[in-house]
Design a protein around this nucleic acid. Structure first.
Length: 110
DNA sequence: GGGTTGACGCAGA
DNA sequence: TTCTGCGCCAACC
């Protein structure tokens, strides 16, 4: 409530992403919707990219787009790192590079 | 303080 | 079904 309270937008996203269990994934839009309609999927993605290595405890690789694919192709090192990590968790991607959101999509319980 | 970029989502063609 | 354009918000320069 004090002005010193910085917008914990990032921490909010981090806390939610850390709740994602292994083998499950969440979409940027889903996270934005859970945080509140005042948020946007693009902001989530931006925050995730802004995630410093110090927050590497956050399974950011479990956050994918509504298409069921990773938008990090070519932006991570090595490329497709997110897909590789998800595959290691048991998530199967099709030839189109997309997975069944209805099967892997996860949401926090109230 | 202002402008641009960007790990996106959705509607239309 | 895929491709294109527009809108949204936060972080960076």
């Amino acid at each position: 409530m004090s002005v010193r309270d910085k917008p914990a937008y990032r921490e909010l996203v981090y806390g939610l992403v850390m709740r994602i269990p292994s083998g499950r994934v969440m979409t940027y839009g889903q996270i934005a919707r859970i945080l509140g309609e005042g948020y946007d999927a693009r902001a989530i993605g931006n925050v995730m990219h802004a995630t410093p290595a110090d927050e590497r405890e956050i399974p950011w690789h479990r956050v994918i787009n509504a298409q069921g694919g990773c938008s990090t192709a070519g932006r991570t090192l090595p490329p497709d790192l997110q897909q590789l990590l998800l595959e290691a968790e048991g998530v199967v991607f099709n030839e189109a590079g997309r997975c069944r959101l209805l099967e892997y999509l996860w949401a926090p319980e109230p």
